[in-house]
Design a protein around this nucleic acid. Structure first.
Lengths: 225, 225
DNA sequence: AACGTTTCTGACGATATCCTCAGTTATGAG
DNA sequence: CTCATAACTGAGGATATCGTCAGAAACGTT
């Protein structure tokens, strides 16, 4: 019997959701290691779930991987929205979102790797970070803060810069991620027509509490103490 | 008996080189379709080469794919060097290289797809396009044309923008590639500190003969009439 | 032409992976 | 408590892929 939408989740629902979440988490771990051609058996073992259970939730490995990446992206996007909620200047909203995403690469390397390994595919996805960035750029342009000839092309550069930055930080573990991220954000703001001095100043403003970010991200992973 | 370096290639050498090239070309075709987990047998069939021949040239599929991508990148880099040889302004050399690379996505879609699908891995490679871009940016900075706080970070943005642009053109076949490429180049020049007017003007200058580019690229593919 | 060497070739045994299915366990309803 | 249903489980047959190897063909040398 189909459960009515909005009804409280039953124990059965929760059991199924737990198994599914375990599989998604295991998949994220493998993606983080760059291995997308792992046998299904290994995934289920890592998730501490029976082999057959896989097919109760997904029809193919690709379906699982896709779900894993989308979940991670959605979560980070929502976090950004939350953290920039009380900012007024659209240029600063954009800058802080980009800076926070840059910080992410070091703070949650496994999530970062997921983004890097599947970034290309997700670049034009209608979920996750891209629509958010588009919205912010458009808002800043409308407010006269950014000079943007073509929103989609500006967005293209921004997304490319974000992925490329992640790759840089991943490949050079010694590099200062804060300096790198803020410098690139500053470069992008100049590209958007802001005077060099103002661009630099905006990128030096303090960021929201990063402890909150850690707490939230821990929640995401479903890692309850 | 080992052949001395520099000696004229014998028929045997050429035979071996031909089969190897056929495998590389077939690999490029598969990479272009995004399929990097094709059975070796299919690759050899596509290359019209015996199954066993594969192991005369490569120890693993990954080795073949790596060779395929590096060959494509080296070739395009050399082409850019050739085409921008007689330019004086370092800013223009950078701009033309970027614009020409943008043009490539439409003119040679299969090569473009190779770059896109393996771009992330090759971003920090010491061969191919990245060292060239680094050299050009440094030259422009030394000449006082670009204002660059950190060459590596600027390079990161440029590389990311190039890959992201390729993805955009690939996903939106209808989009005007010339307009998109030139606009992004202009954005990057502004990021490098050039005045908006000058950035725009540089990106409107004519490009080297594209027919020569076609001829050269055809040579690359080893496609002799 | 004759012989040694390099390269090519495809069949085949070994191995890895898939995914179904019949049986088991957990949950819900009466 | 009893039965029905949903979810979980792992063994196993079917399938796919690998990489070796012995022989054939092309090439070089004398």
């Amino acid at each position: 019997m189909a459960r009515r939408a909005g009804a409280a989740p039953s124990r059965l629902d929760r059991r199924k959701a737990r198994t599914r979440a375990a599989l998604v988490r295991a998949a994220q771990a493998f993606i983080a290691d760059g291995k997308t051609n792992v046998p299904i058996l290994e995934i289920t073992q890592a998730a501490d779930v029976g082999m057959g259970s896989f097919y109760n939730h997904f029809d193919s490995k690709e379906e699982l991987f896709h779900a894993a990446v989308e979940a991670a992206l959605d979560r980070h996007g929502a976090l950004l929205d939350e953290l920039t909620l009380d900012l007024d200047d659209p240029a600063e909203i954009f800058a802080q979102s980009f800076r926070l995403t840059g910080r992410l690469h070091r703070r949650r390397p496994e999530l970062s790797k997921v983004l890097l390994n599947h970034g290309p595919v997700l670049t034009r996805s209608e979920r996750g970070l891209v629509p958010r960035a588009r919205r912010d750029i458009q808002a800043a342009a409308r407010a006269g803060r950014f000079t943007v000839a073509d929103t989609e092309l500006a967005l293209t550069v921004v997304v490319g810069a974000a992925l490329s930055l992640g790759r840089l930080l991943h490949d050079q573990p010694g590099r200062d991620d804060v300096q790198a991220t803020d410098q690139i954000t500053e470069d992008l703001l100049r590209m958007f027509g802001l005077p060099a001095g103002e661009a630099r100043e905006i990128c030096r403003r303090p960021l929201p509490d990063l402890e909150a970010l850690d707490r939230d991200d821990t929640d995401v992973a479903g890692h309850h103490p």
